[in-house]
Amino acid sequence: MRAKILLSILLLVLVFFPTFAGPYALSVATLILFFAYAGQAWNVMMGFAGQLSLGHSLYVGVGAYAAAGLYFHTGLGAWAGIWLAILLCMLLGAAIGFLAFRFGISGVYFALLTIAFAEFTRIGFDHIQWLGGPGGLFIKVEHRTGWDLVNLRGTPAMFYYVMLALCALAFIFCFLLLKSKAGYYWQAIRENEEAAQALGINTFRWKMLAVVISSAMTSVAGVFYAFYYNNLFPEQIFHISRSIEIILGPIIGGIGTLFGPILGAAVLILLSDGITEGLAALGWEFPGVKQVFYGLVLLVVVMFLPRGIWPALARRLGVGK
């Protein structure tokens, strides 16, 4: 009950946020929602099913390039690109999952395999001139005053609401997943794969499902990214630091929890923005300062709150997970 009240208040604030927020605050909030969504998607694989992916930038990148490339070359908007992005990323996730799980690759080795595929793709995209190569892919920037949801063209507030809707849907979807057979099976696999298999769980099939769902969800974040920023560079979007940015949120917020990715993204981005502002005010504008700070926050959280902020906070608030 208490959880529901708190959730309603949060939702109410988020829905009315653009009416009183300035453009800067709105862009920060959109970014938070973006990472909350991507973190939620990653959480399905690692937090629920226990498969550590360090290459989720792959799905963001492929999703972004699929939608942007389609728009760039054929003029078909986001409504079409999203399906192409989801399809491609599901196939990609399935291929990686199939190779890894069939060959019995797990843990650190699996993580390294995901990095390898992301890096492989990053360098590969540098050589696809058709998609701009290392010089980047730019799609036409349009400043519209209205909302064109079908083509994902419109005001910053529209992008904010799109991301908010995605986050809410992802939250509900993950909530339902956790309560379903899949949720139970994934958590069993995460906790002890051998015991899970002895209880009749086809671990290969369920792990595959986790990877495919996670990659499909992540690709949607990529589509959003493409039409929000209007430019894509392999060096940025596929880079391992992008993968790490995605997973920091859920890790700081609480792996395997539903609120963890949201809380983590908010904490991370607000703090880093605050720090950047603070340093700018002091005149210390060196490249890298923000990332040092990221590293320190991460270090403190993994050392002292190994399960993340949310489980500790949830206990304080007197609400369940």
């Binding site: 890298g288 040092v292 590293g295």
Partner: peptide, 12 residues
Amino acid sequence: AVAIIMVNALLV
């Protein structure tokens, strides 16, 4: 975390 701190400290 250690890696992020190291590489960016060098950058700074």
